[in-house]
Design a binder for these strands. Structure first.
Lengths: 223, 223
DNA sequence: TTCTCTTGGTGACTAATGTCACTATCTTCC
DNA sequence: GGAAGATAGTGACATTAGTCACCAAGAGAA
């Protein structure tokens, strides 16, 4: 029985090498070897905080399994949703802050059981210098996060809550790849820094327009 | 007379070498030499657009003279103020987009006569690979812009217009280093994506609290 | 079953912000 | 000086979003 459990565990947890080849095929072979030789895996349970305001980093993280939600924290503990990071993504913040040994103003929470690849900070300079595909990966990570923040600013600066809600649901649908969004009105309200009543009312309007169906504990996105 | 004008011009326009030594003292000597040998200067008049939505980049820009205001554009042409860049700063967007040959969603406008150092894109890989001080400079540029965007999100997501206005004026005071802010209520309203009347009323309240003095065409920041 | 908790619906009210209309003052240009 | 334009002040009102109070339905536990 014990042997069976171990076998299962080995089955479910790919090696660093397998993760890298699957999720980062664009890396040049030498870079892959370098990472395989120098990185470690770390697991987080759903709900666990990967990093938080004021925390220093000892490693840069690449997500290889699960899903991580990034929040900006308000003065009174509000949690404003910024974006998800998924397998194949890097945590831009952990790169930036790692490089400068600065603290972060962001909270990253695992919303599924998550596995991250930890790259020791001292290795970063070397990777950046020696591997062009790494340098491009880092640049692309920054660029796409930067774009996401800009898009977020657009929404809160120029749009009303109705449009933001619609964008939020569409984004969930696209990221999670399911029309059945398992989320409560209260959770949406938290992510958008609004209140449940407002969200409920707007959802009702959207249902009347035929964009979605409301159910207890989940929303069916049709549009 | 012509000779006099030329002499004046030479006097007022430092060389690339002078700019680099003055504004980027942290660069290693070989990097300075490399830049001096490969960069060009470009001047922009106050009010001129340095780059705009949908435009491709052929160079990365370092600002060496003047001041540039960065805006995010709304769907109906609104211009939402993001941040200033000043001598010694790089345009993070021009780095990111240059590297990926992607387009930008941002407008950069010179608000003073401005001079930029243009670095040809093909040089970027080499600089990144060969010069550690360049790599650190690029990372620090990303990090600080990213922080600025996050701070902006904080403000529009969590704060009211009164706090945002106060932050805006304080920011102007700190960046421009003068208590006499030459700006109209309408311009502030544009930058904050609000309306003149709202700004006027909030300013009046701040004046009553003794934080500032209102004058035609300028505001005296006291706080 | 009954109790309790979570989730969601709704009306009434408040606060913040935006809009409209009008006025006043100062500047600039003939 | 007078006209026109830019800048700013203000009251009235509309709209959006947030808050409060309360109800109702479903889910799970004792």
């Amino acid at each position: 029985m014990l042997i069976f459990v171990i076998a299962l565990t080995m089955d479910n947890q790919p090696t660093i090498s397998q993760y890298i080849h699957k999720l980062f095929p664009q890396f040049e072979p030498a870079l892959k070897e370098k990472l395989i030789a120098n990185c470690t895996l770390k697991s987080f349970q759903a709900g666990e905080i990967l990093m938080q305001t004021g925390q220093f980093f000892r490693s840069t993280m690449l997500i290889v399994e699960g899903r991580v939600k990034l929040y900006r924290q308000g003065d009174e503990g509000e949690e404003f949703f910024l974006y998800y990071i998924q397998p194949g993504d890097a945590c831009a913040l952990s790169m930036i802050c790692a490089a400068k040994q600065e603290t972060s103003e962001i909270t990253a929470k695992a919303i599924e059981d998550t596995v991250a690849l930890l790259i020791p900070i001292p290795l970063m300079d070397e990777l950046m210098r020696d591997y062009k595909t790494w340098y491009y990966f880092v640049i692309e990570t920054y660029r796409s996060r930067y774009e996401e923040l800009l898009q977020m600013i657009d929404h809160i600066a120029f749009k009303g809550m109705d449009e933001r809600l619609e964008f939020y649901l569409k984004h969930q649908y696209e990221k999670l790849k399911t029309r059945q969004l398992n989320i409560t009105h209260q959770e949406i309200a938290n992510d958008l820094n609004s209140s449940r009543e407002v969200i409920s009312r707007l959802l009702k309007k959207m249902e009347q327009r035929g964009d979605l169906l409301l159910n207890r504990n989940y929303i069916e996105w049709i549009k």
